Amino acid sequence: MQADFLYDAAEDGAGCQLGVTVLADRAHIRGELRDDAEAAGFRILHSCSLEEYARGAITALGDVVLIDCAEDSAQSMAMLARLDMRAGKAGAQMVVSTTMGALDAVFGCFSFSAPQILVDPCRSERVIAIGRVLAHVPNLRLRELGEEDRLMLLRLTEQVGRIAERLEKLPAGQRAGGGAFRFESPSQGWHAEGDEYTIAPAQSQRPRLPEASFIRRIIRQRQARARFFDGELFADPAWDILLDLSAARAERCQVSVTSLCIAAGVPATTALRWISQMVDAGLLMRVSDPHDRRRAYIALADASADAMARYFAEVGADGSVPVLA
């Protein structure tokens, strides 16, 4: 996919052209990222592999950092963790592409910079991610986005991504790689402890989540629809994520990012966008692995677990009658 348009230089509020740091171990992707960033109006500050950047002298990061990391080697993960801290302190915007196999390790490296993480993206998805960066550069921001704006932007990005993916397939038949939320105050009914979630005795008047087997049956019922109809007709990643995490909470087990992306029933990059939005909205929370700080899990926030329990109680889902949620 070739860039069809050249844009004016991307500048900050002072009229300075924004700089970009390109770090990619795969040379062909590094070249594409560099070309696309220049086409979007950015000035290239650095363009090299992660290893080369780690060996060089410490220099200032660009306003935007584009990274491609396909393998979860210890050296690469250490470099990503350092870049995350530096970008978080400097306010740099990051776009990180990786593979499904390395996703959990890569995701665990980022705690401060809130990057866009793309999984096995095609070039069009990376171009869209670069475009989305402009909405987050502080000096270019025209107004703060409300939760409804964020949700609308997320859905629009999904639609544009699907269109771009299909257009990219047409010429040469190439394979494309693959909130208005309000809740009551969080309950104090549970806390994370070790490798499992410990549920404290709930007050009698507060509903509790159904048995995990019941929620899993609902999930299987939802998935069965794709055998008879186009799965895109029923794509509802937010609800599938909430159901999967509800079942995991009832089972008192932890859920990896990779597992949750699969449960969402949409491409991993799309699932990651939803997970990020739901974390920002307070629906989900990131849980660090106490035994390995490089790993992180995703869990329901207390308020979300309470809301899901009240939802199941409202629809009469006590586990005795199957309900197609």
Rank of each mutant, 00 (worst) to 15 (best):
V127F: 04
A172T: 13
E184M: 08
P186R: 04
E184S: 14
R126K: 02
E168H: 08
G194C: 05
G131F: 03
R141V: 07
E147S: 12
R123I: 04
P186C: 01
R123V: 03
E196P: 00
Q188E: 15
E158W: 08
I130Q: 04
R182A: 15
I199D: 09
R182E: 15
L170M: 12
R132V: 00
G177Q: 08
P186M: 03
A164G: 10
R155V: 09
E148S: 12
I128D: 03
M152K: 10
V160A: 12
I130V: 12
R141L: 01
L140M: 15
G131C: 05
H136W: 05
G189P: 00
P138C: 02
E147R: 09
H191E: 14
I199V: 14
R166E: 14
E165S: 15
D149V: 00
R123M: 04
R126P: 02
A176R: 09
F181E: 14
I199S: 08
A192V: 12
Q188V: 11
E148F: 06
A135D: 09
A129E: 04
R175H: 11
F183I: 02
P121G: 06
T198K: 13
I199A: 11
L145G: 02
A172K: 13
G194I: 04
T157W: 03
W190E: 12
P186Y: 01
L154M: 10
H191R: 14
E148G: 06
T157V: 02
S185G: 04
E158I: 03
N139H: 07
L134N: 03
K169H: 15
A164W: 02
S187H: 15
R141K: 12
I163H: 10
V127E: 09
S185H: 09
